[in-house]
Design a binder for these strands. Sequence first.
DNA 1: TCCCTTCGGTACCGATCGGTGCAAAAATCT
DNA 2: AGATTTTTGCACCGATCGGTACCGAAGGGA
Lengths: 204, 204
Amino acid sequence: MTSGRTATVGRPRGFDVDEALDAAVRVFWAQGYEGASLDDLTGAMRINRTSMYRAFGNKEELFSRALARYTEGPASYVAQALAQPTAREVAAAFLGGSVRATTLPDCPTGCLGVQGSLAAGASGRPARDLLAAWRESGTAHLRDRFQRAVDGGDLPADADPGLLARYLMTVANGIAVQAAGGTSRDELQLVADLTMRSWPPVSS
Amino acid sequence: MTSGRTATVGRPRGFDVDEALDAAVRVFWAQGYEGASLDDLTGAMRINRTSMYRAFGNKEELFSRALARYTEGPASYVAQALAQPTAREVAAAFLGGSVRATTLPDCPTGCLGVQGSLAAGASGRPARDLLAAWRESGTAHLRDRFQRAVDGGDLPADADPGLLARYLMTVANGIAVQAAGGTSRDELQLVADLTMRSWPPVSS
DNA sequence: TCCCTTCGGTACCGATCGGTGCAAAAATCT
DNA sequence: AGATTTTTGCACCGATCGGTACCGAAGGGA
């Protein structure tokens, strides 16, 4: 009988996977992929080295799982922004969300998707490429959303959805860099407001 | 007699310091501070490990020297932009320069000042802080330049020089992240153009 | 020529890196 | 109860990390 539920044979796991992932997210977020050692990670996750390997495979897969957890946690503002009714509200929610997510009170500043790994040695290259694809996926979702806005008349017919998406992602990534450097939430919100004052930017 | 010139006693150095620094710049640029090992660095610099330590002290000081070399080399567009006659030309030159510098044909993509170290473990923290100060210094120069533009009537009297500087640096840093992710020079120039279409953004 | 200073190459240091082998512990299944 | 399966803790692996001691090589000054 291949039951739908997970088999419960064997010794049960002594920790919560999601809680452990949340801890790993914070370490990768603050120190980057290469800067986070196994001791840093397992120490924060409060689990043994061996338990981590049993549960997640290796450091690279742990990072991948942590990124997924980050996406549906601190970075959930992206999906929420995409669901806004108008293109302008999408843009404002995306920028405002990125300001808040990069300056959360009890979290590392900046964005895991940016500072997790921008440049890396050989061992960190898969993580770097994973993050680049992650950011590119966000840009693609914005583009598709703006294309629908053009199709529905919410944006001018001559607007370039791809360019608008690239532009917004550029500002958001810049906000992440600023936040990592210590710029305050208030000042970054002013930057987001300033960006929104000229939205949508004219294409011609 | 303490002569002003460097003493020439002893065996002369067998390599050119600036050439070696240029090689180190490229390694740090492509792999980040933590991702660049001593073997990577000395291999690219074509000098011995010992020679590097004699000439530069340690990895951290080498990074500092490499950043200075980067500033007066690939990042010299910043100083050039600041010297433009009008605030609008400053902004356009700054953004255009960042697009070109982050997509140089035979160099790593992105900006050393960003991807050199955004998040780091304990050993990379000094490098990370150095880069944060480096970016902040650029923002401060832009702010001072825009303040002079306000004083001289080149920008509206109610313009906020600090906010405009932060905004421009945010877009430039975002461009650097995009470039590191593989976005082409042409597309990034379109983003820069789009940003300049609404310059200066209204403050009130 | 002899001395002094600096450079360059080798070989090595202790520490830390990511990853694993092994056996005890803790649960279910028969 | 005994067999089976999975987790956990400890010790350990080879490789690599940044950094250095040592010594011959290569130059200038007297």
